[in-house]
Amino acid sequence: MLVDAIAAERFRLLRDRSTMFWGFCFAPLVGFLLSVSGDLFLRFVIKKPMPGLAVGLVDQVIKALSNGASTFGALFLMIGAAAVLAGDYRWETWRLLTPRNTRQNLLLAKLVVVGEAVFWSLLLSAVLSALAALVGSAINGKTVALSLLDRNPFDIVGVLTITWLEAMVLAALAACVGVLSRSTMGVVIACLGVRFVQTILAGALRAMEQGPPSWKLLSMPVFDADLLRAALLAPDQLGDAGSSAGVALVVLLVWTAALTAAAVWLFRRQDLTKE
């Protein structure tokens, strides 16, 4: 049963402290520490506070969440995903698991657990960014407002969902690469490479295009996620591109589903002679 496999995988990840810390906690913690130390530096070394009289809590959280699957964020999320998805090749432990559940359930459970971990990691980013905003306002003597850009907590939920979906496209790719390469390092390098190339290509194509985005742009999950966040937060500034938001959402879902199906298909046919 899939629920059994998920329970086992969750149990296992919660005891893998190294993966939990480096994969899913490190980036949010670094973001928090950099933010607070930046405020302390400005206040006590430069002795000039950041411009502005107030801090928008929701704005800060949305900013942190939007960057949750950036190349920096993706690096650490993929370290975590690689440990979960390809760790059994590294430790040669598939022989322990495969006789206990179906291959499909085993791999899907890993993806579900990565999805859960990514969600909690993004939530930790959100909480710590809010905390950093509060600490920063206290250090620099600024007032705290809910939002300076007329955003509300529901926008946080929307951005969290979009960024989570963006990360899950990478996680599904990680599952495919993990099965093919049987290597945790291979997963991290391939996923980061794909993420980086997409960012460069999407930027270049967008600069060359006018009007609604082309299918080439829409096929890139990085662009789709940016488009969806923009459609949620600033629809007036999107112009022609706004009409493609629905397509962008579908593309993200299709990529996730297609890569997941491909990973399961490959894994079901894979010989585990020596993991």
């Binding site: 059994d4 149990f11 559940n101």
Partner: peptide, 11 residues
């Protein structure tokens, strides 16, 4: 933990 994990995996 190993046995617990394997028991969970097997339902």
């Amino acid at each position: 933990d190993t046995l617990t994990m394997l028991a969970l995996e097997s339902g």
